[in-house]
Every structure is written in C-alpha cells, then in structure tokens.
Design a protein around this nucleic acid. Sequence first.
DNA 1: GACTAACATGCGAATGTTTGCAATTGAGAA
DNA 2: TTCTCAATTGCAAACATTCGCATGTTAGTC
Lengths: 152, 152
Amino acid sequence: MNPYLEERIRELGFRITPQRQLILEAVAEAGEKARIEDIMERVQAKSSAISQATVYRTLEIFGAHNLIHVNVLDGQRVYEVAGENVHHHMICQSCWSDEKIPHKVVNEFVDNVQVKYGFLAQPHHLFLLGLCKHCQEEEDKKQISKEEEKRP
Amino acid sequence: MNPYLEERIRELGFRITPQRQLILEAVAEAGEKARIEDIMERVQAKSSAISQATVYRTLEIFGAHNLIHVNVLDGQRVYEVAGENVHHHMICQSCWSDEKIPHKVVNEFVDNVQVKYGFLAQPHHLFLLGLCKHCQEEEDKKQISKEEEKRP
DNA sequence: GACTAACATGCGAATGTTTGCAATTGAGAA
DNA sequence: TTCTCAATTGCAAACATTCGCATGTTAGTC
C-alpha cells in the first residue's frame, strides 16, 4: 500500500488491517470517481470474506479524515484516494468530460474569501460543475435556432 | 406556494400537484440545510397520506432541475428551496457556523476559470467548508501549545 | 364540462446503507 | 515473545432509499 497513506493512517491513530489495505487498493485501482459498486466488486474479487459493512465503514472513516475524497456526482457518492498533489475537477454536466484544475487557481479564490470574510476555506477536492467549451458552443447554437423559430 | 416556483415548474413541463406543493412548503419551512427527516416529519404533519417515495422522488426531480438545492453536509444530504437570490455558504467544520457569501464573490472565481480554461462553472449553491475566523484562532493556540510541549 | 394521454402517486417489494454487539486482532508494554 | 486492551470486524437485524407497476390525476383539447 501507498506508504504515504500508511503513515497518515498511523498518525491519525488508526490501525492498519488487511481489510483496510485491500479496500484502499481497490479504491485506488477503481480510479477517479469510483462508485461504491465499483469498489465493492474489486474488494470482493480480492477477498470475498470482507463484509460490506467494513467497506462502508472504512470509506466513511477515511473520508472523514481526508485520506479519501468523497464527492457526489449525479446523485451518487464517488470516491478517490487522496494523493499528494491537491487538485480539483471541472466536470461538464452535458458531456460529463472531466478536466483537472490545479489547486493554485482555486487558491486565489480561497485567498480572496479569506481577505474579504476572514473565513479560511479548505477545499480538498472540489467538483466544479458546469459546461465545457465545446458544450457551451452547442448550447449557443440551440439558443440561436430557438430564437429563429419565433420569427421565421 | 411561491408563485415563482410554480411558474418554473410549469415551464419545465412538470405538473403541479397537491403533494408537490406541500413538499415544497415543507422544505421551505424546514429552513436552510433541511435534512430528509426534517422534511419527512413536516410533510407527515401536513398530510399523513403522502408516501415517502413521493417525497424522495419530488426532491430528486426538483433537485435535478435546480428548484431545490441539494448539498451534502457531514455525510448527509441537505435541501433548500432555491430562491431568486443566488448565494453560497461558508461553513465552519469546527463550530458549524454558517455564513452566506453573495454570488458576486464566487463569480470572480468563475470568470477566472472561464478565462483560463474556457470552462463555464455553474455553481448554484456552493458549500465552502473550512474554518471561521474564531476557530482559526483556536487552532493557532492549540498549535502553539503543542510546540511548547516539545521543548519545555 | 367531458375526454384523454401522459404524468404522478401509492403500495409493497427489492436494494442499499447503517448499526449493535460478540468475537477477533493489531500494536504497544512488559 | 507474550500479554493486554482498545480498535476493528463480521454478522444479522434495523433502517433508509429506490423501483415496478396498477391506479388516480393534471392540464390541455374538444
């Protein structure tokens, strides 16, 4: 298992168990935006003896301590192992493309909020929903043809 | 019911039913960050004939169309009727205080992302988690006494 | 006002998620 | 290494959420 993670787990006072190692591996292998069913499937494949409750509990605990990022996408929880480079996502609600934004850009916003309100935002893994460049153009086209319908 | 909402519902092609009116009322009365149990309780008080499935379905549909904001706080979904003034929240993860930020401030960030990446973020109701001014100071104090422990 | 087609609801069953508790196990102390 | 105890796990039951389908309703049309 990722030695960085192992260290963080110990630091936080949690124990390292085979189940937890395996679950974290499964989340890592399931890639970004892993849904519970993806994770469950991989865990079962590795060892069918692990109880579902343990998977849920592990994700919950590690999520609460930012060892795993938890986000909600399209109504479903999605998980990602927290790496060392902080980043965020720009997700298109039309084509579901997903681009990363480095933390630096988000940080300017964080600083701005800090200066204006004194609030220290700690966004570990933002999901910014919106429209990618391509889908914005598509939307514009739709808008134009809609207006043409009104006066032919 | 809020006439603005009623209009939006019709525009989107949905029907107005007594159940939906009642559920939206309940969400509105439950205030910001209403949990499903708060809503369910209020709905039941108004009319015990409404099925739970209908409440879930209504929240889901109206959430997907931004008539209701859905966020996740501390692992639980929370709902808020979408009003006409767009705003966001700064929520302290230590004392759970909650201050609103006007959209204007968030919009500067949105513009920045748009210019840099071409992505049009559409944050309707951000929950910015972090530390309020007061809790930042408390954290600082803790940090200092921790360091003093190391060399007494 | 009556008619109709599509939409919405309620019911109950199927799924998904959380919880309490007894048994097990990791990791520090001896 | 062995001992000890709190943390962790598996199980099964409780609870929460979603789904399929038959029935009832809305809102537009005549």
